[in-house]
Each structure stands twice: as C-alpha cells, then as structure tokens.
Design a protein around this nucleic acid. Structure first.
Lengths: 236, 236
DNA sequence: CGGGAGGTTGATCACCATCAACAACCGTGG
DNA sequence: CCACGGTTGTTGATGGTGATCAACCTCCCG
C-alpha cells in the first residue's frame, strides 16, 4: 500500500496557542473553553482527566496511524461529548472544525454530581449508537451511499427514527452547512478526497443537491430521494 | 451494486425458542438468561427496556440493510454490554455467537443502583473506545491489516496500551479461539468471506499463523509480527 | 454413502485509489 | 488595480485491491 505522508493539521491555529487555549469562565460545574477552527482540544495518549461537552461549534474526534492515515471517528455538534478514554488515556485526538465553545468537566466533578453524570451517560449511549451506524457506513456501503448518509446527518429530523417526512409533498428541500473540507469528509467516510468530490458531482448531476457558492454550503433538492440513496435502515 | 440476498441467520437455534429463551435465575439485581449459539437476544427496533451484560460466551451486535447486507458493529465477550438504544429502541440486533450466559438489567434497576450504573458507565466508555478503533479498522486499513487487527483482539494483554511484550524473546506464540465463521468475520471486518479466507492463507504462508484442526482454532506463531501488520497505533 | 455446511482457491471484473493536470478562490503585496 | 502563491476543489487516465462468480474440497452427521 502506498501512503502519502499528508500534512495533517493544515489549518494553522489562528488564535491562542493550544496549551492555554482560551480558558474563559467558571460555572457551577465545569470550565468553559474556547477554540478556534483548527485548534487541538486534546491528543490521543494524553492523560484523560476531563470530559468535554460541545456548547457551540463542531469538533472532530480522530485516530492517526504512524504512516499518516487518518480516520475521523466522530463529528461532535453541540451537546455531544468528547474525551473518552481507556486505561486513563484519551483513545483519540480531538480538534475544532469550527470556532467552538466547550465545557470541560473533570472526572471528579462527574463523580460528585448524580444529575450531571446521568445526563452524560445518556448522551454517551447516543454516541455509541451513532458509532454503530458509522460502522455500517464504513463497512458495508459504497461511496455514493456513504456520502448520502453523511449529508443526511445535517438535516435535522430527517432520515432518523421517527422521520417527520417532507414539509410539503412537492417541496422537500433543505439548506445545510457542512463545516468540513473534502479531505475531512474523506477521512470521515473512509474514502479519498477525489472520490468524495466525484460523488458530490454525481449527486449534483442527478439533481439531488446543489453546491452553494460558499465553502460547505449545500442545497438538497429532494431530501427523500437522498435518504433513499443513503439507505439509513430506518426507512422500510 | 449487486447484492446477494443472503440467508442471515444460518444457525438454527438449537435450544429453547427465542421468545422465552432460557430465563433461569433471579439475583440481587438483574435477571440471568441463557442463549444457545445462534439465538437472538434482541432485535433492532424493539422497545429497549433492558441492558445486557455478558457473563459467559460471546454475543455479536449487528445492523442489517434491507437488501441483506450486514455489518457486525461489536463482538461482546464476557463483561461487555449490549442493548444500547436511541429513542427508546434498540439500534442494533444481537445474537449469540456461542452458548452464552447473560444478565439483563432493566433501565429501572440501573436508575436505582448508583454502584451498578457507574460500573456500566465505565464499561460503556470502554466499548465506545473500541468502536473508535473499529472505525479506523474499517475506514483506513486494507484487508490484511484488518484481519491481523481482528486476531490481535483475541490475545489478552497484547497489542493494547501497555502491551506486556513477548513471554520470551524467541517464543512469542499464542493459541486463540475465534468463535466465528468466515462469513461472520467478513461482516465484522467489512470484507467478503472469500477475502477473509484468502488473507488467512496469506498469514499462514508468511508463517505467522497456523489454523488448527477444529473450527475457529488459530495458532499465532509470532504475536509481535502480527501486531506490526495490524498497526494498532499503540506500538510506536 | 449422500447431502449440507463451511472453507479454500481460481478467474474475472468493478469500484475506488492513485497520479496528474487544471480551475476557482482568497488574501497578500507589488 | 492586478499579479502571485497557496489552498481547495474538480476532472481525467490508469491501475490495484477486493468483490463477484464458480468450482471443488473437507468435514460432519444423518
């Protein structure tokens, strides 16, 4: 296998350095932190003293192989958690995809608050189920299905269990913002960036989506058809 | 894409029927259940009232697409948990790979016992990290690496963080038992059963493993070399 | 002995990775 | 203002890995 030694973090941190990145405010529990797009939140192998909850913005959680291959395991929108660990060390690295506000809870804080830990327990289960779905995407779907499944993530209330269906039978569009480059989408979907680009144009040529002028802007013309391609398993 | 409509559950349940499969004994918390190899533990979409902890044997957790494609998301040895849910419904199906003893906790029981739920919380985090690793396997490794990574799972204490290393420098073998058919390994690794078979013979020809006479028996001659192929990320 | 399930191996093909060229975009500095 | 380099995205040509289709083998159990 021939592996390009790709530069991993192509975005230069624009704000404060990582080590003291934007500690801002104390709350009842947890510490609020800010990260600018491209900043590192934590690194795989670091001692795992904290759980991070996204308040605003989007993070990504990923693993690296020594030869430079990267797999993005999770994409964390607000309300989602990062910082899971085995043997006391983070199993993945985490980076901000957009400017992001995050609240960090120490393990000690979690042990103290019954309410907090049960809320996080519920969210952990949610993410575990999302990972189950992600393994299906990576293991058993082709490139077009993977991209369609990915895009459906960004349409609230659609494609999931209890999908609300189209607003109107003949008007089933959506405007979404994907906060990732083609390379990041590729590393999430287990593809190359070229294949992602090609699959986008395939969907465009089928009339299912349009790419907006701004980076990351995508208009979905027919959510139901996109969902059918995605084969979410929730639609009979 | 051409999809074979495969018969999914090729093992006929040999014991009690699924509906009342082996309810056995009451304990302080939880209900002990027994399943024979091939039995269904729960089905995706069913109301999720219980969390299952494996006491003995091995379960698998998987998703199906309507066209018959299957992805095994998790393999659960003893101590591991199944029965995670979104929106109150199991997100995956679960089946016994071997005869298995399981303890089922109701959600209500979990809420009552602080000790129990914190133990399960910890195990949930462990499994979430395993799924992170699994996405790396599915998304970014080739067939040989996937198989090697898979086999390393069955060698206790090796290949993970804090690997103990070989017993003796010149004697680094292991005898493992894989409780799965080639088809099941394929559905776990996102490959076909033919490719799994081929990769096994590749490892055999390299002198790294030998297949035993019994189904599922594999002798690993050089754990460190196998680990190097697996590229676990834990070895520098 | 026969049948079925599971496994191996071979031949061929398709999807996606790879390599490469080019286009579009953006902020910078002349 | 435009030239510029850098980054990101698109498209084309080609090849390799693994899927597909098929034959055959072994083992087990009736």
């Amino acid at each position: 296998m021939n592996i390009p030694l790709r530069v991993i973090s192509n975005k230069v941190p624009t704000g404060a350095p990582v080590s003291d990145a934007g500690e801002t405010k104390q709350r009842r529990a947890g510490t609020k932190l800010s990260f600018t797009s491209g900043n590192t939140v934590f690194l795989a192998g670091d001692p795992a003293d904290r759980i991070y909850e996204v308040l605003d913005g989007v993070l990504m959680v990923f693993k690296l192989l020594s030869d430079g291959r990267r797999q993005i395991a999770e994409i964390l929108p607000s309300g989602w958690l990062g910082g899971f660990a085995t043997e006391g060390h983070y199993d993945c690295s985490c980076e901000a995809l957009t400017n992001a506000a995050v609240i960090a809870y120490t393990r000690a804080e979690l042990d103290r608050s019954q309410l907090l830990s049960s809320r996080l327990q519920h969210q952990t289960e949610e993410q575990l189920c999302a990972l189950h779905e992600h393994t299906l995407n990576l293991g058993r779907k082709d490139a077009e299905e993977r991209l369609a499944t990915f895009l459906m993530r960004f349409i609230p209330g659609r494609g999931r269990l209890g999908c609300v269906g189209p607003k109107h039978p003949d008007d089933d569009d959506a405007r979404i913002h994907v906060p990732m480059s083609r390379a990041e989408m590729a590393d999430y979907l287990g593809l190359t960036l070229e294949t992602v680009s090609r699959m986008v144009t395939v969907l465009v040529r089928k009339g299912l989506v349009k790419v907006g002028p701004k980076q990351g802007e995508i208009y979905v013309n027919d959510v139901c058809k996109l969902c059918a391609i995605a084969k979410t398993g929730h639609n009979e």
